[in-house]
Write a protein that binds this DNA or RNA. Structure first.
Length: 489
RNA sequence: GGCCCGUUCGUCUAGCGGUUAGGACACCGCCCUCUCAAGGCGGAGAUCACGGGUUCGAAUCCCGUACGGGCUACCA
């Protein structure tokens, strides 16, 4: 429990960083930071069919966005590199040599076709469908001769006879035990000389001196295989911690069918990295059962594996949105503007140049919207009326508000008041408009709603007086004039 | 089929032998109020999957069952 703690996040670049992977990365990061250890990013790119450089970059970008800085990995050299599995072939070859030397592996000449047939037959009879060890019985000399002769072969792990139960203490699940005969003589090195997943992972984790393997639940059943490889190699077994899956709203494993599942998709739909990180941390871990909002620093300080939950968790978009709103409200006006200008620019409401020259105006806008936003992109429909020359009045708004008795009267009175107000700021505007109901006898709600609909086009908007201030006197009066014919007398 | 893992309000969770089973999101009501939010207060919501044990006492420990998930590849 000190500086010697080394953990790794090992995604395979066959797609973008998804929610489940991100949570695994977060827990690894938090564990490393908590213990002052080292967080390694290792790219498991051994599937040439599906791995791409682009995906690798996307994963790294997503981690940067979340603030998951790693101490060793792509672009961050360390003493245990390289950090791409495709570049570690020499390391696997070396491990295989060690296994050959200790007699813990043997070549297998069975064809995959023959194996498939046997497996199928065994499964029909309902038994364990592991390898039947045919080639394990071949004399060492003969096997060596056939290998030398170039006969196609794979290398299999020679699992000890009558192996006792393989037991380990999982840091989140507790004691886990597999029957000794549950693991067959699995393939370590393929016919083409490349390492299989389980071999590569075990070798990498030992050669990278990983002390704690924190990973998805789907690897729990692979653990006994890897333990056997560790033992054959004569290496220490790390501590394992298996995290439960994240499921979609239907209780099924999270997939594309559930909509956005990649971290980037959340970024693009207006979520803040702090919120995503906080939410994901909470999905399967709790600080104390009470605290729900916390910074990444607090997460690092408080994180421990024994508070990781064992049950699968359903991803709840609504709670993420609420949390995102919490973080938005917590931002200063300048921070919020910095985050929002790109969104407005993207929507074509403002250019970056305009944003720079109207900075002061935008800073006044910030407090009006901050407590109304759950996602950054909601800003667009909310403030579009401030960026247009005129406004189209929503059908329902006209009926419900403008056609209500008294609204025309109120509009006239408000127009007069606004036209003659000495200064067009929210405070003065409010004072002037507050007198209208008294003077006309129209209820405040009716009068203010009429002005709101006339100037924003909608029955829902940011606070009226502030909105008018930002709109400016000219446009405000124009819009009231334009709406006036639609209003009841 | 075999082997592993899991099961507390709709959702995320607290709980680690004795609690009125706590909190958060969502939901409902009230207050605040120029709309919407935000905020404040309050409410409803969990026979702790089911069945057996162990115990004076079990959501907590043990054993089954059901349901869900994972592994069982020369994928990762």
């Amino acid at each position: 429990m000190s500086e010697s703690v080394r953990v790794r996040f090992a995604p395979s670049p066959t797609g973008h960083l998804h929610i489940g992977g991100a949570r695994t990365a977060i827990y690894n990061w938090a564990f490393a930071r908590h213990h002052g250890g080292t967080f390694v990013l290792r790219i498991e790119d051994t599937d040439p069919e599906r791995s791409t450089e682009e995906n690798t970059q996307a994963i790294i970008r997503a981690m940067e966005w979340l603030g998951l800085d790693y101490d060793e990995g792509p672009g961050v050299d360390g003493p245990y590199g390289p950090y791409f599995q495709t570049q570690r072939a020499a390391s696997y070859a070396d491990a295989l040599e060690r296994l050959k030397a200790s007699g813990s592996t043997y070549p297998c000449f069975c064809t995959s076709e023959a194996l498939d047939a046997k497996r199928e037959a065994a499964r029909q009879q309902g038994g364990f469908a592991g390898y039947d060890r045919t080639c394990r019985g071949i004399e060492v000399e003969e096997a060596a001769r056939r290998v030398a002769a170039g006969e196609p072969h794979v290398w299999r792990l020679k699992v000890p006879e009558d192996r006792a139960d393989i037991a380990f203490c999982d840091a989140v699940r507790g004691d886990v035990r597999f029957p000794g005969d549950a693991v067959d003589d699995l393939v370590l090195v393929r016919t083409d000389g490349t390492a299989t997943y389980n071999f590569a992972v075990a070798v990498d984790d030992t050669t990278m001196a990983i002390t704690h393997v924190i990973r998805g639940d789907d690897h729990l059943s692979n653990t006994p295989k890897q333990i056997l490889i560790y033992e054959a190699l004569g290496e220490d077994v790390p501590v394992f911690a298996h995290l439960s899956m994240i499921l979609g709203a239907d209780g099924k494993r999270l997939s594309k069918r559930h909509g956005a599942t990649s971290v980037e998709a959340y970024r693009d739909s207006g979520f803040l990295p702090e919120a995503v990180m906080n939410y994901l941390a909470l999905l399967g871990w709790s600080l104390d059962g009470e605290t729900t909002v916390f910074s990444r620093e607090t997460l690092a300080e408080s994180f421990s594996l024994d508070r990781v939950s064992r049950n699968p968790a359903i991803f709840d978009d609504e709670k993420l949105e609420w949390l995102n709103g919490v973080y938005i409200r917590d931002m200063s006006a300048t921070e919020l503007i910095d985050r929002i200008v790109p969104v407005l620019a993207e929507a074509g409401l403002i250019t970056h140049e305009e944003a720079a020259s109207r900075r002061e105006w935008l800073l006044r806008l910030a407090p009006m919207v901050s407590e109304r936003l759950k996602r950054l992109d909601e800003i667009v429909p909310m403030v579009a009326f401030l960026f247009s020359d005129s406004v189209e009045i929503e059908e329902g708004a006209r009926e419900k508000v403008l056609e209500k008795e008294g609204s025309g009267l109120a509009l006239d009175a408000c127009r007069d008041a606004l036209a003659s107000v000495p200064s067009f700021d929210a405070e003065t505007i409010e004072a002037a408009l507050r007198e209208v109901p008294e003077r006309t006898g129209v209820k405040p709600k009716v009068a203010f709603q009429a002005v709101r609909v006339a100037t924003t086009g909608s029955t829902v908007s940011p606070p009226l007086f502030e909105s008018l201030e930002l709109l400016g006197r000219e446009r405000t009066l124009q819009r009231i004039d334009a709406a006036r014919p639609l209003a009841a007398s």
